[in-house]
């Protein structure tokens, strides 16, 4: 009998990309996706590590087109929050590949579980919003935003990955294909006949935010508005969602939560708690001086 490990090793050897004739040397396997495998490779010309996404043998022509499109989308989206593509081509074994920056860091959800405070978590979320808003401004909808596709780097940089199912505005697509990850998919994405626009990414980001948010009412309201079932009830765009999160971080009223008088008082006290504490301290010291020293 051949062990599972031996079988896996055999599979790796058979499916390993043939990098002869390229500037890359295979280092190790990083991960497998639905249509492609990502390897760690060494770029021998520039002497740096890169991630190589190589199309699997078994996929059809549409997957090849999708990988090529993903590389083109990444090439046109030059933004600090979007993983840059370095190279695209065909290997000696006939498979398509592209080389991208090797991202070191942690998935957003694992990073969030490692203990950053609320401000740090929301600051990272805003950087994701910036990257996605930039893509929308260039006519690209991600359609598969989730913590697995967001990496937080060693120096706090945030990168949005896996643009494999992204759609370019105006591009035709078969309407019987459903793409995305159920927990982060908007209702309209689950219906094959529906038109999906930027608000599908707003929904996904709302679901991501819900995973990062604590019990603060305003933050929960922002996530709820972003994940409304009706697209017209959500934020108009990712920038509007980011702006509301920024207002929350600044201690201002948020669009997602109509305030009562008591909410307003609580928010005012939270925002100016230092000044209020100092005024109270002043009054206590003053009363002490008056009552004890008659000053």
């Amino acid at each position: 009998m051949i062990s599972e490990t031996a079988l896996d090793r055999l599979h790796e050897l058979v499916t390993a990309p043939d990098l002869s004739g390229t500037r890359y040397e295979l280092v190790s396997l990083l991960g497998r996706g639905g249509m492609a495998t990502v390897y760690l490779a060494r770029d021998t010309t520039l002497d740096r590590d890169v991630a190589l996404k190589v199309l699997d043998w078994t996929v059809d022509e549409s997957s090849a087109l999708r990988l090529a499109q993903e590389a083109r989308i990444l090439a046109r989206l030059e933004h600090p929050g979007i993983v840059p593509v370095h190279d695209f081509g065909r290997l000696a074994d006939g498979r398509l590949f592209y080389a991208m920056k090797r991202v070191r860091g942690e998935r957003l959800d694992r990073w969030a579980a490692s203990g950053p405070d609320r401000h740090e978590r929301l600051a990272a979320f805003l950087r994701v919003c910036d990257a996605v808003a930039f893509a929308h401004a260039h006519g690209v909808i991600h359609r598969d935003l989730k913590p697995d596709n967001i990496m937080v780097g060693e120096f706090g940089e945030v990168l949005v990955l896996d643009w494999g199912v992204a759609r370019v505005h105006g591009q035709s697509e078969r309407h019987d294909t459903i793409v995305g990850t159920p927990a982060y998919m908007s209702p309209e994405q689950m219906r094959a006949d529906a038109v999906v626009d930027e608000r599908a990414d707003v929904f996904a980001l709302g679901a991501v935010l819900a995973g990062l948010a604590d019990e603060r009412k305003a933050l929960r309201a922002i996530a709820a508005k972003a994940t409304a079932a009706d697209p017209s009830a959500r934020y108009d765009g990712v920038s509007a969602l980011g702006a509301d999160v920024s207002r929350f971080m600044a201690g201002l009223a948020v669009d997602a939560l109509p305030e009562t008088a008591s909410d307003r008082v609580v928010r005012f006290v939270r925002r100016y708690r230092l000044a209020i504490a100092l005024v109270v301290t002043y009054l206590l010291v003053r009363l002490l001086l008056l009552s004890v020293f008659r000053i």
Binding site: A133, F134, A243, L274, A275, Y282
Partner: peptide, 26 residues
């Protein structure tokens, strides 16, 4: 009391973080 007011305002002004500017679309 006058000195105390100055001391408190001086401390609070350094500790105060102004609200960040409104975010704009890229």
């Amino acid at each position: 009391p006058g000195s105390l007011v100055g001391l408190i305002v001086g401390y609070a002004a350094q500790k105060h973080r102004p609200v960040a500017a409104e975010r704009r679309a890229p």
